[in-house]
Design a protein around this nucleic acid. Structure first.
Length: 200
DNA sequence: CCACGGATTGGCT
DNA sequence: GCCAATCCGTGGA
């Protein structure tokens, strides 16, 4: 029931393995509005070497600094000038890989998440499936922004805690969404049939 | 200094 | 299905 944050060693493995194993784990944000938790239902791997789609591909830059830290921290970036996307950094110091959290199934704090997404007046008036079924939506619902870039996932306000593994038969794989490079790699992982996972 | 475009989303045709 | 919104890192002049 009460599970511990995943240890740093969990993240010091191949990024595709971490992306797959993060399915079913619990994302937790002890936010100003209350404790928010949800089960990770969809991820994508971005490698530190030979992956043109990765932000780390051009090498260390001001924006991607956190990707090159040791695994087990959060990398947040602004997408299309409007949204934020959250990643779990993986690999050793200097490697430059991360797992994008694309969708989450809300567990605790659903009303706060709905308020974060739609405003207080929108709570209870929108289809729940649309609260966190995309990377920008996850960050908005969970109240994650650039202030969380680089925070530890073990002992800060944002954690990822252990939970029951998802069996192989329930894991779907596909090419990554929304990219134009290295589209041949099947580095998107999701829980089949989950209503918070789009494009199945 | 300036121009370009993206790991997205939601609204309109 | 198409496309605008909107920021800022990055790269070329």
């Amino acid at each position: 029931m009460h599970s511990a944050p995943l240890p740093v060693s969990f993240y010091l493995r191949d990024v595709t393995q971490v992306a797959r194993d993060l399915l079913g784990k619990r994302l937790i944000h002890n936010s100003p509005g209350g404790i928010l938790t949800g089960m990770i239902t969809e991820t994508e791997a971005y490698d530190g070497h030979d992956d043109p789609a990765s932000h780390s591909y051009p090498g260390p830059k001001p924006r991607n600094t956190m990707m090159f830290k040791e695994g087990g921290i959060l990398y947040v970036y602004r997408s299309y000038g409007i949204h934020f996307c959250a990643n779990a950094v993986t690999g050793a110091e200097g490697y430059g890989a991360a797992v994008l959290i694309r969708s989450v199934e809300p567990e605790s704090g659903k009303n706060v998440m709905a308020a974060n997404r739609f405003g207080a007046a929108g709570v209870g008036k929108k289809d729940a499936a649309v609260i966190s079924n995309g990377p920008g939506k996850v960050c908005q619902a969970f109240g994650i922004d650039m202030s969380h870039n680089g925070v530890s996932l073990q002992n800060g306000a944002v954690n990822i805690c252990d939970s029951d593994p998802v069996e192989d038969a329930a894991v779907g794989m596909s090419e990554r969404i929304g990219i134009t490079k290295a589209t041949d790699r099947m580095w998107r992982f999701y829980i089949k049939g989950n209503r918070y996972v789009p494009k199945q």
